[in-house]
């Protein structure tokens, strides 16, 4: 892959502020560097506390960065502020872990999906409704779901709505923070398949954060393994899964064994 990377992170350091007299905290992310090419999926894997979510939140500009740089399509991403940041962020779709928390309990699916579209300046009307139905369809939900509320959906359905919302503004980059962790395993496989389809259809770049290496191995082109803020391994998925260089990666692989069995079932592939 050549050309300008979709996203380029260099020597990123994130440190949570500690108290005035407390000793300086160890950085949550300690010098992470990676590139994400258009159409590529990077899996960020690590146990909890490894800094993967902090990294993601910094890329979304929800966390301040101590040092290092982030470039989005060649532009200095950290320099964008205020209103232009609000607009620029619309080029990133975000799906978080628990759809029941990330979808407002007070709004209908239609209102939830209309929100980003209207924030981008689309006015309410037939065109908006048609767009919402297309989005629902793309994510494998019937159009009559638009009048439901989040609590009337199953976990998988709600996560599909969250994915539909993330795709509403045709982003080139999709950021997924443990998108399958709150779901049971059979639904996990369905969501993973949906993501794989979307990636293929739309040529999306994805950042896929998870603690479950087996889940992400299915969908990621490359993997980045993190531990306590450090990047311990970065490389092509096949290489890392086949021959992990670190004990830690090997452990992560073995933790995911169960998931793999179920995931493989969902794929109609015989488990090993």
């Amino acid at each position: 892959m050549t050309g300008t990377p979709m996203l380029e992170v260099r020597d990123l350091v994130i440190r949570y502020r500690s108290g005035l007299f407390a000793p300086r905290a160890k950085p949550a992310v300690n010098g992470a560097s990676f590139q994400l090419m258009p159409g590529e999926t990077l899996g960020i894997v690590g146990e909890s506390g490894s800094g993967k979510t902090s990294l993601l939140r910094a890329i979304l500009r929800l966390l301040p960065v101590e040092s290092g740089s982030i470039e989005m399509s060649g532009q200095d991403w950290l320099a964008i502020k205020g209103r232009s940041l609000r607009q620029a962020r619309q080029a990133i779709g975000v799906v978080s872990q628990n759809p029941f928390l990330s979808l407002s309990p007070r709004l209908s699916v239609r209102e939830i999906l209309a929100e980003p579209l209207q924030a981008a300046g689309q006015s309410a009307g037939a065109a908006l409704n048609a767009r919402i139905e297309t989005l629902l369809g793309d994510c494998g939900l019937p159009a009559n779901f638009r009048d439901r509320r989040a609590r009337e959906l199953s976990g998988g359905q709600a996560q599909r709505v969250a994915i539909a919302r993330a795709l509403a503004l045709e982003p080139q980059l999709l950021v997924l923070d443990e998108p399958t962790s709150a779901l049971d395993v059979s639904v996990q496989a369905q969501i993973l398949n949906l993501l794989a389809d979307l990636k293929q259809q739309r040529g999306l770049s994805m950042l896929f954060v998870t603690h479950n290496l087996k889940v992400v191995a299915h969908i990621a082109d490359r993997l980045m393994v993190m531990r306590r803020g450090d990047v311990v391994e970065l490389g092509a998925t096949e290489r890392i899964v086949a021959a992990p260089a670190q004990d830690y990666t090997r452990q992560l692989l073995s933790f995911g064994l169960n998931a793999k069995t179920h995931w493989a079932k969902g794929q109609g592939v015989q488990a090993r």
């Binding site: 609000r86 928390l101 981008a120 503004l169």
Partner: peptide, 11 residues
């Protein structure tokens, strides 16, 4: 998270 999601959506 749903408020954060709205923020990220540019609302």
């Amino acid at each position: 998270p749903y408020v954060e999601a709205a923020r990220l959506a540019g609302v």
